Structure formats: structure tokens, C-alpha cells
Simulated assay, not measured.
Amino acid sequence: MADKNYYEVLGVAPDADQGTIKKAYRKLVRKYHPDVSKDPDAVNKTAEINLAYETLKDAEKRAEYDEMLANPFGRQTQGGAQDFGGFGRSGFGNDGYSRYEFRSGGDFGDGEPFGQGDFNFEDLFSAFGRQQHSGSRRTQGSGPVKGEDQHAELSIDIYAAYTGAERTLTLNVPGVDEYGRVSYQEKTLNVKIPQGIAEGQQIRLAGQGLAGYNGGANGDLYLKIRFHERPELYVQNKKDVYQTLDVMPWQAVLGGKIIVPTAGGRLQVNLPANSQHGKSIRLKGKGIPAREPGDLYLNLRIAVPKAESEADRAAWEALAAHYAER
């Protein structure tokens, strides 16, 4: 990949829009992330993917890079060396990239593991290129500079929003010393998922972003919450929960009180008589328990049991005969 330009690295056309670039980046990061990929060169490939995206997602950097591609001989500096605006044919080299690794244990109380798929590494992976640029501009006379804040997505199960949760994450965080050399430091972080958190809200981990220099404070790490999407259980409007509820045909026809297991616990629900497949029952205030809680919508699905014995078949035949006579 080292001989490719950034567009070729991401597999997009030079005139690709930002949506196409972002989609291609996410696909490649998931494919080559060192924690999941079996490719022996996954670290270097991921690094180059990150640098390509870091450049192309920023309009100003992309314009500079396009100019460099149009003028591959670069601009001459006073010393006669070529200046490519901070890009260079091989980027920052194999050691000049960010790689954050997350490891976690436990679950959110519902048996769902909190593992590799819970993070979107997009901004974390691309961050180190910016730090590398900043590091190259350090001078002895400059004052303290705070490290850059970092942003990532934290994907959680809906159950965690109902009950709250706490997780321990281990990160391998890249850093650059005063000589521009890259090193990694292992950090263990405790992340508290507050009860009632809504999709789109952020959790701030103070001082866990990129390191400052010349005595400057570290940046912060912001984890933006999103919920796992499942066909049977999902969230809309940040706080409204939609859950598929299977009911037997006789329950749908006769109605009555039934016990329904939900993300917030077992609830007694009054099922209307003659309920139809696809209809919804709204339970006000039983969605995500925020300051203004959302609602819970039970989407009815008629579950038809199999006729696994002669007695079962006879019962269905009697039912069919009854309605045939009407």
C-alpha cells in the first residue's frame, strides 16, 4: 500500500464525496484492525489507512494533498529540499501512526459481552497524524500546549441505558517523545455508563486524550454513545424503545393481562382483545429512563405454534371447522 496515493489506499476516486470516503475508511479499518485481522502487515496497513483518511476528510488538508499530487516535485525550500506540505510519498513512515487498542471484560448485566465491536476507532486511529504534525513544529521556546481531545463511539446494549453499567478498558496509547520517536503506553480506564443515557450523548474521560507537550495538559477522550441495533429491540428518537412481542393466536384474540420481559424488567401488560399482527402497544414512560423518559412500544407479532402431535392437529382442525361454519 505504501506506493499508492491516499485515494488508492482507501479505494475511492479522486472526486469522491465525504460520505464515500468515510464509508470506505470504516470498511477498511474493520478489515485490517490488528486486534481482528490475521493479515501479518495489519498494523502498517491500518496506519496508512488512518493517515489517508485523516488527510482526505479535512477539506483544507485534502486541497493541499491534491495540489501535491498535481505537482509531485513539490515546492523548493531555501535549503533546496522538497516540501510537500507535510505529506511526503510515504506519509510519516511505519512508526508514525496511531493505534489505540481496547480490551475489556465483563458484560452489561444482560449476558451481552462488552468486547472488540463496542468501539468505533475512526477518530482515535486518525488522531496521531495530527499529533505528529504538531510535534514536528515544537520549539524550545514555545509555551505549554494542551494535547488534542479525541472522540470515539461507544456502542452499548440498550439494557445498559436502563440499569447503568461500569466497565474497565485497557488501551495501548501512542505517544511521541521530544525526538519524534513513537512509543506506546498501556492505560487502564474505568468507564461509567450512567443510567438513562441517551443515544448521541457523550461520556468525557478527562486527561485521556493525546498527550500535551512543553508541560501542557493532556487532552480529553469523548465517547459518543450509540445503541446496538437489533430487529427485535431498537431505539428511535434517542429515548423511545421498540420491542417485538410474540403472542399466541388465542392470546391475541382473547386479550387479557400478560407478563412481558423488557429491558427495564418484567411488566404486566393489558393485551387488547382481537389484537392484530403488526399493531403496537404504547407504554408511556417505559422507554429509556432519562429525566424525561421515553416510551416503550411493543410491536405485536403473532406466533403460530406447530402441530407436533395428533392432538395438536385435531385442535387446529376443530378451529378451522368452527370458522368455516360461520
Rank of each mutant, 00 (worst) to 15 (best):
E325W: 04
V176N: 08
R266N: 15
W316R: 14
F108T: 01
G115I: 06
E292P: 00
A42D: 01
R62L: 11
P272L: 07
P14T: 06
A307L: 03
A160P: 11
T46L: 13
L283P: 08
S155I: 15
Q150G: 07
S98V: 07
L245A: 09
K22V: 04
I281M: 04
D41R: 13
A318R: 13
G264I: 09
V235T: 06
Q150I: 14
R138T: 08
G96T: 01
P272T: 07
S155W: 05
S90R: 15
S183T: 08
G111H: 03
S275Y: 05
L283M: 15
L271S: 00
E54I: 00
L298Q: 11
H33S: 02
T163E: 13
I288M: 07
K4G: 02
D220S: 02
V304A: 02
G180V: 03
D240Y: 00
R30N: 02
P289Q: 01
I21Q: 05
N172I: 10
P289E: 10
R89M: 12
P231T: 12
R167L: 00
E54H: 05
G164L: 04
D157P: 10
Y25K: 00
P113V: 04
N274Q: 14
E148Q: 14
A315H: 11
I259P: 09
M248C: 06
L298C: 06
D149I: 12
N172E: 12
K57R: 14
N218D: 06
Q251V: 05
Q195D: 00
K239P: 07
G207S: 11
G88P: 02
L169D: 10
R282S: 09
L51C: 05
Q82G: 10
P249L: 05
S155P: 05
E325C: 07
K31N: 01
R75A: 04
F84A: 12
D15E: 10
I49Q: 10
A290Q: 08
A324W: 06
R181H: 11
Y7K: 06
L221R: 02
I21W: 08
A70G: 08
N214W: 10
Q195R: 15
G219N: 11
A217G: 06
G180I: 11
E232A: 05
A307P: 10
G129L: 10
E64N: 14
S309K: 07
Q243R: 12
Y97T: 01
W316T: 04
A13S: 14
S183A: 01
G86M: 09
N94Y: 11
A273H: 03
A307E: 13
V9M: 03
H277V: 09
K279N: 12
A252R: 02
F125H: 01
E8K: 02
R282N: 09
E101G: 13
K31H: 01
V12C: 11
V43D: 04
P289V: 11
N214A: 14
G80D: 07
G91D: 04
Y97Q: 04
L189I: 15
A165Y: 01
G255T: 03
A152D: 11
H277I: 02
G91F: 03
G216F: 10
